[in-house]
Design a protein around this nucleic acid. Sequence first.
DNA 1: AGATAAACGAGACGGTACGTCAGGTCTTAGA
DNA 2: TCTAAGACCTGACGTACCGTCTCGTTTATCT
Lengths: 198, 198, 198, 198
Amino acid sequence: MANKTPPDSTRRSERSRRAIYDAALALVGEVGYNKLTIEGIAARAGVGKQTIYRWWPSKAAVLLDAFTQDVEGYEAGMPDTGDLAADLKFVLRASVDEFADEKWQAPYRALAVAGANDAELSARFVERLLEPGIQVYVKRMRAAQERGEIGADVDVRVATEMVLGPFTQRWLMRTGELTYAYVDTLVDLALAGLRPRA
Amino acid sequence: MANKTPPDSTRRSERSRRAIYDAALALVGEVGYNKLTIEGIAARAGVGKQTIYRWWPSKAAVLLDAFTQDVEGYEAGMPDTGDLAADLKFVLRASVDEFADEKWQAPYRALAVAGANDAELSARFVERLLEPGIQVYVKRMRAAQERGEIGADVDVRVATEMVLGPFTQRWLMRTGELTYAYVDTLVDLALAGLRPRA
Amino acid sequence: MANKTPPDSTRRSERSRRAIYDAALALVGEVGYNKLTIEGIAARAGVGKQTIYRWWPSKAAVLLDAFTQDVEGYEAGMPDTGDLAADLKFVLRASVDEFADEKWQAPYRALAVAGANDAELSARFVERLLEPGIQVYVKRMRAAQERGEIGADVDVRVATEMVLGPFTQRWLMRTGELTYAYVDTLVDLALAGLRPRA
Amino acid sequence: MANKTPPDSTRRSERSRRAIYDAALALVGEVGYNKLTIEGIAARAGVGKQTIYRWWPSKAAVLLDAFTQDVEGYEAGMPDTGDLAADLKFVLRASVDEFADEKWQAPYRALAVAGANDAELSARFVERLLEPGIQVYVKRMRAAQERGEIGADVDVRVATEMVLGPFTQRWLMRTGELTYAYVDTLVDLALAGLRPRA
DNA sequence: AGATAAACGAGACGGTACGTCAGGTCTTAGA
DNA sequence: TCTAAGACCTGACGTACCGTCTCGTTTATCT
């Protein structure tokens, strides 16, 4: 029952969509996620509330799309200089800087958090933002593994999590500082266990 | 100015406090954190709203106290059989079970998440719930380190995070399953790097 | 400025117009005037909203046209048997029956009411529906006056209102029942005057 | 089911109630009944919307109470100079003036009209405002009847309607002007009857 | 034991935002 | 070119909670 016929997406206003994305990102930076409201987004975007409700189920979904749009074409990838430790440290240090940027961090954190209480949203967040970031590490590790720098029996997925998990936890839970020194230590400690056994 | 004289805590109604804790925990399990409301807690507890506002600043704070109360005397600690890997796996496997229990998981997740958007709450959450849990690991590792099972130069705090971070991330972000096999792999991989260099 | 060129009425779709009338009358009977909506009429008629807005300024105007269409060729007129009292009673009794018919009454009442708050609509309602009904009485009275049954100095318009006004008030305001006995009393009293017979 | 416990009227804010009445009457005069909104009343009164919804079921009900409050203690009654025609004319002429006053007329008309589409409201409107006004005439007529100025067999209720009905119809439907001359004619005709004087 | 005063339950209050509905305008496709 | 379809902006709807503010009513000391 209750199947509202879904709107015809070919007629969708591109103008409104962009305005909504811009408004959502601007507002989440200004007032934070908790005080972000659909009414606020609509007003800022110069758009009717219904136009938002027509296309998204929640403010979190709007923000996810807005943010995804924003980081499209990111896919920076990781260098492969042949030195795995150096490459990991290089990218993680960049992440340290990124996560220190309040403007970028606010919506990302908001999404991570909103996802935690909403399984469906979580799935989309992971698929669209989190997983691609993880895969960058997995691929680089796999390359190292093929060259024999990492033990053949090592689960590179778990190995990646061993580097990213602590980083994420410190950031999200504020259980510690995110510094260059920290990520260096982390990489060294993690890699020490990955080397092929002599 | 504006210093509301704080309420006299000696006159506080113990009955009401318990009722509020019970109501908060019951409701967060039934409707989830987002739909948990102060009005709902007050109604369920048979308590005036003001009685809640008098003693707590937010629903998250209520929940934190309620939950803390609930796990008081936990402090289980970790066995020390002399086999570090086995001990870590033992406790982590218990955590796997614990985090699979919807009733326990709901408020814990809610608090973790609420903290992410509220630095002050976060600090108390970490201090009261998260950090004690981490310290259990840190202490066990330190013991192992003193016995020379772990390299003397290893930062046991970071080493602990290398085990708990991935676990937490999988749970919170739902980026993977939490199984016995997973935590075993995790422990083995982490410890491989911790052994003292020959 | 702003003079929208009026639409070319020669190209108007007769099919749509009829469908709109039918839908409007059906809906006003089903849901009442307050819950009658342009959207509802359009949907029921299988017509775009714009097609309604192009030709009518308001739902009341649609209903007025629809209803007028429906009662076209009414103009029943009043018999002239030579007995004024009997003729008046005859027609008023027919009205009693008519106003008891929910299906006929609903849109008529709706229009009377909508008119009360909209002078322009009111004018058209009076001109097209109400006044013709009144004139039927006025003519019959005038005929009686010419035959000397009614005083030559009597204002037959006012005399007519003296019969129809009470009837309308009872109906519209629900201040009393509309029965055969009532209209008989009304006619007798109006014709006779209140003074005691000498 | 669904019986929300009714609010405790002893705790009701008199201040708010007055402000709501004032706002409702002011707004209905300024923008008309159709554009009168609960939000508008609340805003103008400096009151939460819920405070209105708590105590009244609709904007019409608010207006009815507001208006009733306003005309409380009216109950002017009718003079009894012994000359029935003169007394009726006197009061009706006063009504002519009253109904020409836009400020008084707007809410009264609005209520009459709202009642037409809402039987329950109608009942209260009639009981509180309309019927008392009618009874003033009925009583005066009855007095005249007891003195023999009016035939003993005359139904004074119907006789009253014969005077007030036409007046009301002209006003509500705008079928004619409301002048002193009109009400004089009406009274004379009603009292005299239509038959030619012998 | 009685008086005093704070916490208590209850819930009305001024507000904000919700998610829905309809109004009236504007755009696109099709006949 | 007019029509059907329907997306759009607007604004009001009625509801849910917010956090504050009285109201009596316990309850727990302190005379």
